[in-house]
Computed example of a mutant assay.
Amino acid sequence: MPFADIVRAAADQFHRDSIPVLRRRGWRPRAIAYDGYGSAAPDRSGVPAPDAPSRDMARVLARMVMRPPNAPSEGPLFQRLPEQLPTTARDARRQAAQNLLEAQRGWRMFIDVPVPHLPVTVHLGAASVQTRADREGYVDVVVRGHGLPPGWHDATLEATGTEPVTTRVFVVAPGPRLGVVCDIDDTVMVSHVPRMFVAAWNQLVKYTSSREPVPGMAQLLTQVLQEHPGTPVIYLSTGAWNVVPTYRAFFERNGFPQGPMLMTDWGPTNTGLFRSGIEHKRTGLRRLMIDLPEVKWLLVGDDGQHDPLIYGEVAREHSDRVAAVAIRRLTPTEQVLAGTQLTHPVGLAPEVRALAESGVPVAAGADGFELARALHPEALAVQPQR
């Protein structure tokens, strides 16, 4: 038996053995909801089309985990200063104790106990779907026939033995439209730690103030949204699902647009001990192109790892679905921390010739301000139907 299968079986058995013990201590299942995305059926009259149930869809994401009865909510942490600073030593001690308790969530989520195969019902608009969590507690379900108009909407998840949880889904308007796929680590935020330790850093250190935004990236994405209203912004990252609350807080604190995050999970798979970040991004991009067939994408990443290679492959194979590629050039120090060699002088490594072969416009710059200047407006001119 392959070693990865042994590790995976041991992890599954540990989770199965842990759940009864935690239940006796008062722990119960809880749904951790993540933002999703979807499409609306073509409808120009304001009346749902007869074929709407087969033309609209939504992807709803969540995870079922065990939590103690007094566990805090799974919302963003440390996204702002307290409304009132402590005025006495007693208040300061109380606030410090509360911050310490909440900070423990960082490494408590690092050892989440998932609830596998739990029955879940998802309600969105006019549709409801019954499904089950997978072996790691994840719910990734497509809801069709929701009948909702474009924009943000609430979906409700009901699972056996849990309180109902509401999550959000961004429904994209029908017709040709621009969309944005954006990497996170080293593209919109810099952690100043080696890439091999970023995952642990994100898990164990929950203070979003310890991360710095890349200058101009929030402004770049916001400008795209202002010039192209209704643009979906999807953050595609190799980071773990556990750190989504941290990223949400970082985005809100630094003015980044809201958008679904497509993350990955740690642990053994059917093919190895660790998941492939490259395959995660390849699969994520192809899934987006299938789910949202009328969207033409602006792909934003950095040259510290494999974004130019992945984006180049996608642009060459589906040049009609890629509006432009924007690559942030890392500094020499960031290149070292990212675990890669220094980049080609023009900012794109030689092995990504696929970008040039695709004929898709490519912009490179040290930050969001340079990328905004390098991106020509005509490259993003995808006119939506109104």
Rank of each mutant, 00 (worst) to 15 (best):
I234G: 00
G267K: 09
D302F: 08
N202Y: 07
G239K: 00
V198Y: 00
T238H: 01
L273D: 03
L225K: 03
L262E: 14
S191H: 07
I278C: 01
R248G: 05
P215E: 09
Q226P: 00
V224N: 00
L273K: 06
E212D: 07
Y247R: 04
S237I: 03
A200S: 13
L236S: 09
E252N: 14
T208E: 12
P194G: 06
R253P: 02
T187W: 07
L262Q: 13
R253L: 08
K296N: 00
Y235V: 08
M263H: 04
D183L: 07
D291N: 06
V198E: 05
N242C: 02
V300F: 07
G216A: 04
F274R: 09
P232R: 11
G239Y: 00
R195N: 14
E212C: 00
G230I: 09
D302Q: 10
T246Y: 06
V205W: 10
K296V: 15
P293T: 04
Q258A: 14
A218W: 04
G216I: 02
T222K: 03
T222Y: 01
T187M: 08
A200W: 13
P260Y: 05
G304N: 11
L262A: 13
T222I: 00
V224E: 03
P257R: 06
F197H: 10
I278M: 11
A240H: 10
V244D: 10
L285G: 03
D265T: 13
E252L: 14
G259H: 09
N270T: 11
V243P: 01
E279K: 13
F197G: 01
P245W: 13
I278E: 15
G267T: 12
T269S: 11
W297H: 01
T231V: 11
P245C: 06
L236I: 08
G267N: 06
G216S: 11
M261T: 06
N254A: 03
D185F: 02
R195V: 10
L236A: 10
N202S: 15
G301S: 07
F250R: 05
S209V: 15
Y207E: 09
T238A: 14
V233Q: 05
L288V: 03
R275H: 14
D183T: 07
P260M: 05
W241H: 10
S209P: 00
W241I: 00
G277L: 04
K281A: 03
T264A: 14
P260V: 09
V233R: 05
R286C: 02
G267W: 11
T222D: 12
R211N: 12
I234C: 01
D303P: 10
N254V: 05
P257M: 04
M189G: 02
S237A: 12
R275A: 15
Y247C: 10
R282V: 08
G255W: 05
L204I: 15
R253C: 04
I234H: 01
I290M: 10
R253F: 02
K206F: 02
Q219L: 06
F251N: 08
R275N: 12
H228E: 00
F274A: 12
T283K: 11
M289N: 02
A218C: 01
M289F: 03
F256D: 00
D183N: 13
R211H: 14
V188I: 15
L204N: 14
